[in-house]
Design a binder for these strands. Sequence first.
RNA 1: GGGUCAGUGGCCGAGUGGUCAAUGGCAUCAGACUGUAAAUCUGACGGCGGAAGCCUACGGUGGUUCAAAUCCAUCCUGGCCCA
Length: 399
Amino acid sequence: MKFTLEKRSASFSARAGTIQTAHGIIKTPVFMPVGTHATVKALSNDELEAANAQIILGNTYHLYLRPGMEVMQAAGGLHKFMNWNKPILTDSGGFQIFSLAHLRKIEGDVITFRSHIDGSLHRFSPETSMEIQRILGSDIVMVFDECTPYPCDHEYARKSLQTTHRWEKSSKDHFQSRDPLYGHSQALFAIVQGSVYEDLRYESVKYLTDEGFDGYAIGGLAVGEPKDIMYDLTQKVCDKLPEDRPRYLMGIGKPEDILQSIARGVDMMDCVLPTRNARNGSVYTWDGKINLKNHRYKKDFTPLDPECGCYACRNHSRAYLHHLYRQNEILGMRLNSMHNIHFFLELTRRAREALMEDRFPEFYRDFFTRYPVEKDHSKENIVHRENRRKRHIEADESG
RNA sequence: GGGUCAGUGGCCGAGUGGUCAAUGGCAUCAGACUGUAAAUCUGACGGCGGAAGCCUACGGUGGUUCAAAUCCAUCCUGGCCCA
């Protein structure tokens, strides 16, 4: 893998570059659609390519459980399995340790996990995660980490960071001790943790850059902390990261977060929001998010976004999409997903274009002049997440 | 004509003397969703009021009772059975 820095904004930390991988070049800044189960939900590869997707994500934990490694190995890796011939980045399963916390037990460097599907016991370690990602054959492999929750006191964050660093070192050692399985090279990215604590974040950057990785991710953000903290830490961490390596802000975000992150020096982002919200009836436009299920769209025969060139906008009206959503028709979810993915990719594409043409500040300003930034729901989201978790547990217990 | 069962808020449906403006579900109206246990979750949902509260409501009417969606009488409407 090779990262080339092509352009730097004069007044922002934003930058444009390219990442050469075994499956092609990625132009950054880039948004990466999430395809947890070897599918970007509701979209075919053709549709992803029509939206100009350059790279997609897969998930170690989920693909390990289903379809399982035997299948993946027999298929010849994730690219062949899903017939996606462009770059793939796989998450290490670290996020699932956080989001499925009640099903796990951490003992030293081994995590005992109960499958959320059938309750079966599994043992995970940095080594396991690397082996799985070798079998998946992703172009970019993520180290195994712990994503700290929020709120999280300094002492917990410090201990968690120690563990995470140890795991990252083991990940690297194990990764380097094995060869790729399918004849193409794989890159390994580290993940900066440290919760909301500046000192820990700096310590993490220092440790990981001393160790040396192909790229650096920022993890553990957008887990419920206030927005200003998230933006501030993104800026501070990016400022300390080496210029000649790609930076990946994990799990971010809303359109405004994506642009704010790019402005702070982030090259790569991913988020489930465009696909999940599409299925739940929310779509994004240059004038803000719209909730398609609202009564006001019942007779709105304009496209979602008149400027958008996606299939849904070229062919259908808000009224039609409103109808499909309310009928719970599967096409509605597909069209909304096509649109949202197109929008997120177009946002990063335009940001890159502006950077290359030395007009990023204008682009940034124009975007925020027009796009109404959503209220910060970070506090409620903690409660929501907790409620949902409880419901899942109750559902498990009742059968 | 006789018998019998039933009529509950926009719909379906629980409740069978007070804790009932009345469980649920659907529909409706909003909101949320950030490395996907997510085609999911949350809230509102008779009227007026900021609230305490007041008013109107469980087919109609009239009763019993301190108190009725719930008991009694009668009428109306519908299902089923018998003639």
